[in-house]
Design a protein around this nucleic acid. Structure first.
Lengths: 211, 211
DNA sequence: TGGTCATATGACCTTATGGTCACATGATAA
DNA sequence: TTATCATGTGACCATAAGGTCATATGACCA
């Protein structure tokens, strides 16, 4: 957590520092990011930086918190009323909300992606596992709900399915990027629909074959 | 490419250097890996290192080449006779081969994973895109074949499906790790079968619903 | 006015990095 | 024996990192 000194700062100055940090972490991985550069961009002396934060890690966590907060602004409205939509509609809205976040906050998305990429980095394992665990839980509940409503196969391995869907949720933005590059189709609604169709029906032909 | 001097080295010495590099790149990301530590572990003078390689990047590429070579030893036998298996059998064998590589070469797997994680790092984009492009191509052909044999839905978006399957191929080893952690089931055959079942049939109930 | 206290400041520290280079060594050929 | 040439060697270099600290500043109160 930032020190009180930082929180006491006039909002303008605080915002400038945060923005400098966001720019740095957008351009460089955590390890490569430089407090010197941040300090320079924020136009504050090196010493002041250490009045505000315990160090690089502290600043990074602060930025992650801000990102999570912002992402939740997109996600919570979707999750608010799970009973009004079926499973796939809900999942669709979830993925779409993630993509809306990603396209309207490209720097923050970039930082999140770096975070997921470096997910075994000692500095963030804790943060990651906490949040991914929560996501798995949410999806597990949604799947249970979907099964009980007859929207999903009854013989699903719930935890396994939850994990897959949660992983897809993480990689959907990344996936979208390469989708656009390949197909020149930048409408993420198309992509999400295709993805959900895969998830729903699989890719096998209808002729049933024993596993 | 390593310099001729390196190739002239007695095999024992060469192996020692390569092993030191593998250990370093297993423990640290490319950026964090230190030539100083490698040189120390390999018990060669710093100067000698630069007689053998142009620099860190050169060494890293050399190691990547060795990894790819080794991974291919697992994969080529599977791909050798695609007409003797149906699509899902072939895919299963492919995933299993990847997992066999991963479990029998954990350090190399770790390095590959780091590579995929840092895939936009300027030093490896070229290497990555080359190889992922190749993978996409292979899967596209397999899917075409699968459709023509009636094993896959005719209305598939081939490129899209190929991309998904290729991505899954990349993440299956990663996925396996968290699968084991969650379920305590370390039999990857189970996991692969579940994954393929998802891919084949989807997770939706059989009641057909308009998309 | 003088004292106190949070805050501001930047020169400076240690430690590490990737990389260089003048020179040493030793095998081969004349 | 002497010259040549690939190879070996480690002290050394510039650069940059994250972090510290003695000192300066300035707002507030007695």
């Amino acid at each position: 957590m930032p020190k009180q000194t930082f929180l006491n700062l006039p909002e303008e100055k605080r915002a400038k520092i945060e923005q400098a940090a966001i720019n740095e972490f957008t351009a460089y991985s955590y390890d490569q990011a430089s407090t010197n550069r941040i300090v320079e961009a924020a136009e504050i002396p090196k010493g002041s930086f250490y009045q505000y934060f315990a160090g690089k890690k502290d600043l990074y966590r602060h930025i992650l918190d801000k990102i999570l907060e912002r992402k939740m602004e997109f996600l919570t409205p979707v999750m608010a009323n799970p009973m009004e939509m079926d499973f796939f509609q809900l999942l669709r809205e979830t993925y779409v909300a993630g993509l809306r976040f990603a396209t309207s906050n490209p720097e923050l998305q970039q930082i999140s992606q770096r975070l997921m990429a470096d997910r075994n980095h000692p500095v963030f394992v804790e943060f990651i596992q906490d949040n991914m665990g929560k996501a798995d839980d949410v999806f597990r509940q949604l799947i249970q709900l979907g099964i009980s409503r007859g929207e999903l196969r009854e013989d699903l391995d719930v935890a396994f399915a939850a994990h897959i869907i949660s992983e897809m949720n993480n990689s959907v933005a990344d996936f979208y990027k390469s989708y656009v590059k390949q197909t020149m189709d930048d409408d993420y609604l198309n992509m999400v629909d295709k993805l959900l169709d895969f998830l729903r029906r699989g890719i096998g032909s209808s002729e049933q074959v024993g596993s």
